[in-house]
Nucleic acid binder design. Sequence first.
RNA 1: GCGGGGGUUGCCGAGCAUGGCUAAAGGCGAUAGACUCAAGAUCUAUUCCCGCAGGGGUCCAGGGGUUCAAAUCCCUUCCCCCGCACCA
Length: 943
Amino acid sequence: MSLLEMEKKWQSKWEEARIFYSDPKKMKKFFVNFPYPYVNGFMHLGHSFSLMRAEIFARYKRMRGYNTVFPFGFHATGTPIVAAAERVKDGEKSQIEILEKMDVPKELIPKFSDPEFWVKYFPQKSIEDLKLLGLCVDWRRSFITTSLNPFYDKFIKWQFNKLKEKNFVVKGEHPVTWCPKCNNPIGDHARLEGEGITPEEIILLKFKFNGKILPAATYRVETVFGVTNMWINPEFKYVEAEVDGEIWIVSPIAADKLTNQKHDIKIIRELDPNDLIGRTCENPLTGNKIPILPATFVSPEIGTGIVMSVPSHAPYDYIALKDIQSNPLKYGVSETLVKNISPIPLIIVEDFGKNPAIELSEKMGISSQEDVDMLEEATNIIYKKEFHQGVLNEKTGKYEGVKVSDVKKVIVNDFINSGIATLFYELPGKVTCRCLSKGVVRIVSDQWFLAYGNSEWKDLAKKCLAQMNIYPEKARKQFEYVLDWLKDWACTREFGLGTKLPWDEKWVIESLSDSTIYMAYYTLAKYFEDPSYNINPKKLDDYFFDYIYLNIGNIDEVTAKSELPKELISEMKEEFEYWYPFEFRNSGKDLIQNHLSFCIFNHVAIFPENLWPKGFGVNGWVLVDGEKMSKSKGNFYTIRQIVSMYGADAARITLMNGGEGLDDPNWDSEFARTITDKLKNWHDFCIENYGKGRTEKLYIDRWFLSVLNKTIKETTEAMEETNFRTALSKGFFGLQRDLKWYLKRCLNSPNKEVISEAIKIQTLLLAPFTPHICEEIWEKIGFKSFISNAAWPEYREYMIDKISEESEYYIEDVVNDIREIINILSRGELKALEKIEIFTAEDWKWELIELVRNKENIGEATKTAMSKEEFRKNAKDVNLIIQKCFKNRYFPEKFNEKEVLNEAKSFLKEEFKTKINIDPLEDPGNDRKKSLPRKPGIHIYFM
RNA sequence: GCGGGGGUUGCCGAGCAUGGCUAAAGGCGAUAGACUCAAGAUCUAUUCCCGCAGGGGUCCAGGGGUUCAAAUCCCUUCCCCCGCACCA
């Protein structure tokens, strides 16, 4: 039978027997889950590693005797699917290609213009794929999110009502990237350019100009103390406008931006920049009168089109100033106006002198304000240096002596409070919407937030984390950091699939926010998804979830309202109470800073302490043969591709062998290719050897039983910590090596009981990883029930036999020594051996070791030894032995070398295909003298 | 910059929290041999350098230190990866 057939066979047997359909039982339970994937495509290698960790742990715990449940849902909330469907509708080529590349049948593609079709198609395909991988999932509990699933919809509404009751959902405003034409926020997926760009906060400083305001936009408020002049662009028109009751002068584009940022704005008239150039305005902070000068580097697109000039710390300003001072007439200003302008240094930085901008501009050889690239670079360097290391000087008044990075926020607040500055948002790069319009920043008001910044809430979350298992424990710090740092999260959108905010239906609950406590929903999904229960979602409201999840209300009321049988409601409630909380949820480490932390927050907000999450596992991102997986590199694989190329068992074990901990696991194609044969060989070996062999007990059998038990111990420990790679390394590769040695040592004649035991143990240890082939072996060696339900092997302490392990190391060392000598002497060419003689150490050498074992140092030891006549006459060897022992701090325990060697004699004979003499009476080469304890003298005779 | 994780012998990766049996597991790759008409698979050996008797030398990002002894402890420098959000 081919491996593929084997996999098919067992997958259908599992399904028939419904062995992974887990229901409450009077047993200890284990609840494993995985963040449901977003259903805009097939599941791929990236998903498979994280979910495989959940899978392996689930199978392991099942074998450890836990009633284990592993449910699996699908996520459809959010905008990407809607946007993609929209694109299909528009016949957009690139989107259609994406689908084609996924091997979606051509005739189905038009159907993808409906988001609902995605939500039907991909979950179904994903389930197929995951079944091919052999997951032990209870598929009765699968569901999709959003209002397309009325049950889930009700559940999310309940969740948000709960949060609202506790004042954890609050209203506020926040800036978004916005398309003025579509009248919508532009998410990353809806952009032609500018992915990842988000609004940045900048400050407008209100310079006074004849009762009007010249608002200069800046990231660097602290430099207002050093402004020497203002810049405006002489080539563009400006406008005068009434803004929140003041008269502002800004570029027309800036006027538009202000409208989107909640400012009341009315344009009064257009303004020629030349009417401003040459005149003076007033620094609102220092009261200094400063000239308004022309500069072409000023862009009307950025900020307000008005720039304050700080030549000491801004390369642009310095260069522009130099330009104009060297040739005022060219710029149409009088010489007297500019000649006395000199930079005002404000910030002290270690690696620079007084005027960093001047130094750096000159060092880089920037000559004109048109050298944009170099100016940008210089600006960046200076900004970073000054922000992180800079300290303000005496010109900055009360801020003197403080680091820029420490005082920036304070300055901003001070300025805003005193009315000389206001907040403004700007995009740090160009964002273009799919409709080709340019994105702007818009302040969205009446936005709803989850108040993760709330300190009481935070404290509860931290308490929860402290009680949780984190796998690996190393990741805990990261969680602690994130819980501290999380701020309020905008939890509603105006667009996309999802559940409507129950009390404000213009909003849809955002995708990360509707996925925080849904693990509790799995316990009920089994009922909701089964039509035979005839549950009407319209009847299910908060009262229902209150009762099931929180034990609020009474059964009679719930029965009446839901129109469901009392017994069913009780069963559902008991089901939830049985399974919850969950023990293990595993994901990529990228979800630490949002989803997993949100999961903690929402649990502690809604559920009592006994229902808080018990454990999270996190892992790195899958590499493919050492490289990041990406579609453009052509190393992007879906689960179905992987399974069809290598088979499920090979794929599973390859994934788990790829890595553990927080390191990025590596999918090794070479390993995947070669492991199949190893597994197949194991299968064949089991069938050939199980229940066969000699009945006589030998010394080496004891050794192997000891090793077997040590392996069980180490593998189990690794499994408990979800260190699956270690588990494979000990429990498979290590054991295989030991088995090989065992077979060699007993001259391929294993003891029947021992070999059968080994076959059982090895197959059991492997079962979570490669369940299909293990089921097959299990069946063929005569077990009637599934290995998936078999008990994990128990470690038996009394089987551990230190002495036989030590003796075996000794034999190994002897073999290695003999081999080394042969290699050196024969130099690669094969010479036939005549015989090998082995001489064990004389008793007095062992006695010497006993004598010096507890001595402080070599001198002490030598002195003691030499005081005895019998050692004195072998002074040279005594010295050698003492030195060796002390050098390695290793004093071997005495054992009967001759006996051990004799036991292994036939093996040695077989191994070297020659005669072996142990302690022969004749010793013509005086080889016995060379023997040391645990290191016999060896003499090799060639033909 | 902040927070986290790392840098080990051709590659991947153990070991490092409890320093000594560590030239440093295992896998992969490579080389040689066995098997085969042959390829693959499998098996055996080798895979830092030197060595015609089991030995010696140099190694674990760089530098310094502690110690009888350091890949392992301490200090310092350099380098890489991830996150810093309103997105699934």
